[in-house]
Amino acid sequence: MSALELVGVSKSFGARAALAEVALSVGEREFVVVLGPTGAGKTTLLRTIAGLETPDRGEVRLFGADCTHSSPAARDIALVFQNFSLYPGKTVRENLAFPLLAPGRELAAGEIGERVQWAAKLLRIERLLDRPARKLSGGEMQRVAIGRAIVRRPRLFLMDEPLTNLDAKLREELRVELRELARRLETPVVWVTHDSAEALSMADRVVALFAGRVVQVGTPRELYLRPATPAVARQLGSPPMNLVEVLRDGAVWRLPNGDAFGAAASDAPQRALLGFRPEHVRLEGGASEALVEVVEHLGPQRVVVLRWGGATVHAAVASSVDVAVHQRLRPAVAAEHCLIWPR
């Protein structure tokens, strides 16, 4: 059984369609990342699942039951936002206990205390329990906000860019911690983000959402290697996939200024957008010359920004490769690493 199933969900705000015919299914222990740029409809999607928006058309099913018109409380879902919503004057302990004190939840005091301890331990915030929320750092606040979601032991977590407002280092640490936590809790997660690293490293499956439509669903590796559209290609990978306009001249692709890029199949389109990953650009053996504009040292690898045939191309090479700014070289990309979108 699916934990969550969306069937043909559409939602408009006035004339603007926020979601168009969205279909989505999430398995009982699955971690699904919805990836898309700002304005793609990601937050509307989560709010629709949570019951904070009602779809104009379509169905929201939770564990087999139609919940399209159920109240948010009846859905037993937890939603974590980008902005950590805590009670600033209350302690961490009080903040964690609060969701368990809601009317209708008749938990014994002992049970509440146990759950608070359990959540604090999982999120490594035990030492903060008696501190007021306003005295916490951003990373600590987001841990508490997530703690407030898990104490209820909901049957589904919805996470709306929960790491966006944190420092890069904390983001990196929490990516790892929260992915492991989700596995331990054995609870499905729908995680919304525009961040490529989160989608690639956390997801069992990625749902690419652009302009309110699902354009691709697959494992991170499938989307990384075979993005369905140039937009998906650009949203994944750091640096993202190179996209270069080319014209076919017999058996050769030509770059914008006419320089040769490499071999083209005889049945290839006349005009195309070629997509290729930076790690698949070799720095020698190519058919024409490129100029090194910038060399960036990104730890284990070096990113080389090339001006090649009137286009800007990023290459990622091992940090042991010697390359300098203003150097001229002849880059090459093997045909099997090129995706072709006819224009």
């Binding site: 790892v176 992915r179 690293a197 690639l200 590796r221 990978g237």
Partner: peptide
């Protein structure tokens, strides 16, 4: 404990 795929490599 975790296999984090990063596209061109994994951690």
């Amino acid at each position: 404990a975790l296999d984090a795929f990063m596209g061109s490599h994994r951690y």
